[in-house]
């Protein structure tokens, strides 16, 4: 695969970058949706994420990326392995799996292994993209154009964290927890509300409109294209710094306190905006906590809420198709009201 553009070399797009890093610190935040202009670096950022993330520990040889520290969630194959003896571990890059738009259902959920069936007449399960994305990221470019039946399927798995396959007399279930990352251009159609709700955070991406940033984008892209190795080396230090930041934030995350006052503010914010359900508050809290962990803070403060609230809430407002004030403006208004 071609070398990805370094994450830290992406000019601007702070909201999108922060959202992706927060999702990397706490996958429970639940996915990132980046909607915006053409050519604004949405896909670049997601692909860059793959090389940025710290490696993860898996059971060696497991096709479902089972986490050795969580035996309760093992797949069937790992359970067999445990019964046979000690498990071997391996460090692998966090998967960032592309779900290409033309994908067929069998490749997404997994199906019988065609090769083995044809050549040896054996029935074996060939895991699909959902298995590959377990504990990592599942990336859908142009998420708004994804076929309906695939969307339904993703929703189902994202909700249960488990993929169940019943085919050809095979009965397989395996864990499939992943961070859904979607990008798209709103001019090509909107996203189905059910899928929209499934994303923890949603960010609006715009092409930078100040000249120095625009020049910087073009210059860096040009440098990257003409000498990829040198460019990547120049940014390696930044990348390492960011990677370490994510690792230590993950370690700190469980100890970051969420004071009652912050909880109350978050709840008031959601009430002011009339968001449906509790998902908004949960995401808001989790994202704020991940941000506090990233910044090395011991507790969540108003500042954290303020910074993550737009991404965590803007896609959850009760739709008023005629309010063209835009959801971002409404969120900003509510933030100003509640947090002062």
């Amino acid at each position: 695969m071609a070398t990805a553009f370094p994450f830290s070399a992406i000019v601007g797009q702070d909201e999108m970058k922060l959202a992706l890093i927060i999702a990397a610190v706490d996958p429970k935040v639940g996915g990132v949706l980046a909607f915006g202009d053409r050519g604004s670096g949405k896909s670049t950022a997601v692909r860059a994420l793959a090389t940025l993330l710290p490696k993860m520990k898996v059971v060696a040889g497991c096709r479902y990326n089972c986490d050795p520290e969580r035996p309760a969630e093992f797949c069937d194959e790992c359970r067999v392995r445990v019964a046979k003896g000690a498990l071997k571990f391996a460090q692998v890059p966090v998967p960032v799996v592309d779900l290409p738009l033309g994908a067929t259902e069998d490749r997404v959920v997994g199906a019988l292994d065609l090769e083995r069936a044809l050549a040896r007449g054996e029935k074996a399960f060939e895991p699909g993209l959902l298995a590959r994305a377990h504990r990592g990221f599942l990336y859908i470019d142009e998420a708004n154009l994804l076929e309906d039946h695939l969307v339904d399927l993703l929703l189902d798995v994202a909700a249960s964290g488990e993929n169940v396959v019943e085919r050809e007399g095979l009965s397989i279930r395996h864990p499939a927890r992943f961070v859904l990352v979607g990008t798209g251009n709103p001019e090509e159609g909107e996203l189905r509300p059910q899928l929209l709700d499934r994303f923890g955070m949603s960010v609006e991406v715009k092409t930078p409109n100040d000249l120095p940033s625009r020049i910087e984008v073009v210059r860096r892209r040009d440098e990257f294209d003409s000498d990829t190795a040198a460019f990547t080396a120049t940014w390696a230090k930044e990348e390492t710094k960011l990677r370490k930041g994510i690792t230590s934030a993950r370690e700190r995350l469980p100890s970051v306190a969420v004071p009652d006052a912050s909880l109350e503010r978050a709840a008031r914010l959601c009430m002011a905006l009339g968001t449906d359900g509790l998902r908004g508050e949960l995401t808001l809290m989790r994202a704020a906590r991940a941000l506090a962990a990233l910044e090395g803070k011991k507790a969540v403060g108003d500042e954290h809420l303020r910074r993550v609230a737009p991404s965590a809430l803007r896609h959850r407002l009760r739709r008023n198709p005629l309010d063209d004030a835009g959801s971002s403006v409404r969120v900003d208004r509510a933030i100003a009201e509640v947090l002062g």
């Binding site: 290409p100 199906a111 065609l114």
Partner: peptide
């Protein structure tokens, strides 16, 4: 059709085809 356009632009951006179809990857 915009679906076809998306396939073309995706291939242009990645300069490769990623195929997940019919049991093939």
């Amino acid at each position: 059709p915009s679906a076809a356009a998306v396939h073309i632009t995706a291939a242009m951006d990645a300069r490769e085809m990623i195929v997940e179809r019919d049991g093939l990857s």
